[in-house]
Design a binder for these strands. Structure first.
Length: 592
RNA sequence: GGGCCCGUAGUAUAGCUUGGACAUCACAGAGGCCUCCGGAGCCUCGAACCCGGGUUCGAAUCCCGGCGGGCCCGCCA
């Protein structure tokens, strides 16, 4: 048993199914389970709308609902079944739910929330930003969604590997190598004037992604107006693909990547593996893909020798019905290399998930078309999210000068968090305050971006991203710290937590138990639907339920035996919030 | 021009995949709690499903058409 609500739902579904079958209306338990609704607040725990069955059986719906309610056996964790018009309402037996939920939380501890182990190895590839400069906030939405998805899938029972696909090939990468292959003094004046590092600074004194990324936005503009330089970059790009990369190429890519990863680590994002795009070219797998595509059913050779695939049969938009596989000179293009990467992922994992921005929507479809063309039947799952937009409209973009840098946002958040901590805690050392501020800041930023559904844009506003109130990461962290504080004060920081299941009668208590009990099914829901923001919604709801309980009901000051039971509830809440924070990638803070 | 996604109170969001009973929550606004375990809190009030059709006993949810916004559309990735 890992989900306290499961036995109750199963019982309801079984019994309704049986009664409907007796009346001549067969409905699968699976379908009934889906029809079991939440009810309007406070009405019941589950509701069943009898319209459909009543219509099919040709009896008045109120009559059916009323009969079902009367006949329903009050076992299986239910305390009351009633009908209200066309609805049958089910109330869980609070004592039984308390017993099973708290027992489960204490028995499983850190594992409460997790589902049974599953065999399928899953790869979550996310972020995979070109190592050309520091992250702006728009780009990290990918990482936050991907990292949270990976955490939730692990909790759901899958062995998960996170991967960063490092693009060290192609034009972007060649551009940064090109500019840094000459001394700053020799940079074209247009670039030098915009991007010259301040005197006295060096890659030793500045984060490498910021340092090396400095000229990048200006190089691309420069190349548009300087064909000679553009040719040099193109030549460099060919050399890189052929394996003759200049010595600085890999060195710069690694340095920039290290800087970028350091920023991600601040918000709890780390990777299990890195796959360098160039390795796929060097080990011949890209060449193999090109060969397979050359023999593909719809391969075509363009006038200048470029290989393409006629994908008009794949339902792609008319203008993109031709997918280019190689350039005229035979070198590969990004979609082709991505096919090689996916074949490699398919060989290592049974599920692969790609987290992609909406600008890659079409790429995802061409990738699938190319896989079909080479006779590959396996597919990646795409988790597509919308951009982070700026108040003026449009998405965040470094090129358009309307991007907020991640490090800058975090630094500002840390400053504010620091001030907040100092305001309310005088007993902490400067080190402790600094550590807390860093984690509060990270929690605020990560939660702010995560809480919006992936298919909706996030509108970025400084004040909201930096808010520690209301529906925020620090709100959840605070509830966790508070729960810990109560246990410390009661000198009951460790189990066992004896409790009396019948001790909880007030709504603030029973609502809290009901919310704690929903954690395992929430994990499964997110693993199934990829609606990662639901973890944030749940976390907030749980913290809110705890705050209400905290406000309404004394714990330490209560008389025994209520006191012990309430302490047990606080301990269970702390465990549930803490585990949820882990899934969110937000730090558990014992004090803040 | 074509394709994909989005449109919920002043602002910002949940619910939409699986149609169901008074549409969630925050910020801002009005009022209250404040001798009380941590006020980053709690309670109360006002305020919303883009428009038009369709399907259905029933539509924020599904379908069609508008309108508005975002993104993408061949030798970049």
């Amino acid at each position: 048993m890992w989900d306290p609500w499961r036995p109750v739902r199963d019982h309801i579904v079984r019994e309704i199914g049986q009664r409907l079958r007796e009346r001549g209306y067969p409905e699968s338990e699976w379908a009934l389970d889906r029809q079991l609704d939440d009810t309007p607040s406070g009405v019941a725990d589950f509701g069943y709308a009898a319209h459909r069955a009543a219509k099919s059986l040709q009896i008045p719906v109120e009559q059916l609902a009323s009969e079902l309610a009367k006949e329903f056996p009050l076992s299986g964790g239910l305390s009351r079944v009633s009908s209200d018009g066309a609805y049958v309402n089910f109330h869980a037996d609070t004592g039984i739910l308390v017993q099973s939920t708290l027992e489960l939380v204490f028995a499983r501890g850190l594992e409460y929330g997790q589902g049974p182990a599953r065999p399928e190895k899953v790869c979550v590839e996310h972020t995979s930003a070109n190592p050309t400069g520091p992250f702006h906030v728009g780009r990290v939405r990918n990482g936050i969604i991907g990292d949270t998805m990976a955490r939730v899938l692990r909790a759901a029972g899958y062995p998960v590997t996170t991967e960063y696909y490092v693009d060290d090939m192609g034009r972007q990468s060649a551009m940064i190598t090109w500019i840094w292959s000459m001394p700053v003094d020799q940079w074209p004046s247009e670039i030098r004037n915009n991007a010259r590092p301040p005197d006295g600074t060096s890659v030793a004194t500045e984060k490498p992604d910021h340092w090396y990324g400095r000229p990048y936005p200006f190089v691309s503009e420069f190349l548009k107006r300087n064909p000679d330089a553009a040719r040099q970059v193109a030549e460099l790009s060919r050399e890189i693909e052929s394996g003759n990369s200049p010595p600085r190429h890999r060195e710069i890519a690694e340095a920039v990547l290290a800087g970028m990863l350091a920023s991600l680590a601040r918000i709890g994002i780390q990777f299990d593996d890195f796959v360098w795009e160039s390795s796929l070219v060097r080990n011949g797998s890209v060449a193999q893909v090109i060969e397979r595509l050359r023999r593909a059913p719809h391969a075509v050779v363009e006038d200048n020798g470029a290989l393409a695939v006629d994908a008009s049969g794949y339902g792609l938009p008319k203008e993109t019905a031709t997918i280019l596989v190689t350039r005229g000179d035979g070198t590969s293009l990004y979609p082709t290399r991505d096919v090689a990467y996916h074949l490699q992922k398919f060989s290592r994992f049974s599920r692969t998930i790609d987290v992609l921005g909406q600008d890659h929507q079409l790429h995802a479809r061409t990738l699938v078309a190319m896989l079909t063309e080479i006779g590959e039947s396996r597919r990646p799952e795409f988790l597509i999210y919308q951009d982070i937009t700026v108040p003026e409209g449009g998405r965040m973009s470094t090129r358009k000068g309307r991007a907020v840098n991640l490090d800058e946002l975090l630094d500002e958040a840390v400053q504010r968090a620091h001030a907040e901590v100092l305001k309310r805690r005088e007993d902490l050392s400067e080190d402790q305050v600094a550590t807390i501020a860093e984690h509060v800041a990270a929690g605020a930023v990560r939660f702010h971006i995560l809480r919006v559904a992936p298919d909706k844009p996030v509108k970025f506003r400084w004040e909201e991203a930096l808010s520690f109130e209301g529906r925020s990461g620090p709100f959840v962290q605070y509830a966790y710290a508070r729960a810990g504080s109560i246990l410390r004060k009661a000198e009951r920081e460790t189990p066992p937590y004896p409790f009396e299941a019948g001790a909880f009668r007030l709504p603030a208590e029973t609502d809290l138990v009901r919310t704690i009990a929903r954690l395992p099914s929430t994990v499964q829901y997110v693993a199934r639907t990829s609606h990662v923001h639901t973890v944030a919604t749940y976390a907030y709801g749980l913290a809110e339920a705890f705050n209400r309980f905290y406000q309404a009901i004394p714990v330490i000051r209560a008389e025994e035996p209520a006191r012990s039971s309430r302490l047990a509830l606080v301990a269970a809440t702390r465990q549930a919030i803490g585990n949820t924070l882990d899934y969110l990638g937000v730090t558990r803070l014992e004090r803040m």
